[in-house]
């Protein structure tokens, strides 16, 4: 009695693998990201929350650029309040919980090449906006 190969289980498996891969597929990713996260040995897993992304070219809050960086320094046109960046404070302030609840920690995704003078201004801005706690996201091994 002749029987064909039963491939239903294999199709099921392939379908699941395909769905898993499609979930993580980013068609815009061209192999180069604007942010090169530093490598770190810390074990704590990254969590969610408001995100400040600092590339070598600009500062982005939840996907919206708020300040430009030129040659490793804040652009001369960026308005400052002391050490804080005015536009960054304005962008973060509406995200502070209005019900008096403790604000969540801000996730800082910063390029490894960004100097402290820029990062310090970003942290000072977050602090002035009402986010005194930070999480520095790093790439694990």
């Amino acid at each position: 009695m002749a029987h064909g190969l039963i491939i239903t289980s294999m199709v099921d498996m392939f379908t699941l693998v395909l769905l898993f891969l499609l979930m993580f597929y980013d068609p815009l990713y061209d192999g180069s990201s604007p942010v090169e996260l530093p490598n770190g040995d810390v074990q704590a897993k990254a969590q969610g929350g408001p995100t400040i992304t600092v590339t070598t070219e600009n500062i982005v809050v939840n996907g919206k650029p708020v300040a430009a960086i030129r040659d490793g320094k804040l652009d001369a046109a960026v308005a400052m309040q002391g050490r804080a960046i005015t536009a960054l404070v304005s962008s973060l302030s509406p995200l502070v919980p209005k019900d008096g609840a403790e604000p969540p920690a801000v996730s800082v995704e910063c390029d490894r090449r960004v100097p402290w003078q820029v990062l310090g201004a970003v942290l000072e801005s977050a602090s002035q906006a009402g986010f005194p706690r930070y999480r520095f996201v790093v790439a694990g091994e």
């Binding site: 980013d26 810390v42 920690a105 942290l123 930070y134 520095f136 694990g140």
Partner: peptide, 21 residues
């Protein structure tokens, strides 16, 4: 899809104190 995907584990350092000025 396997060529396009990249697997990165993200970790974090937590700072509960704002920078002193």
């Amino acid at each position: 899809a396997l060529i396009a995907v990249r697997f990165v584990t993200l970790h974090e350092h937590r700072l509960d104190s704002p920078p002193l000025v």
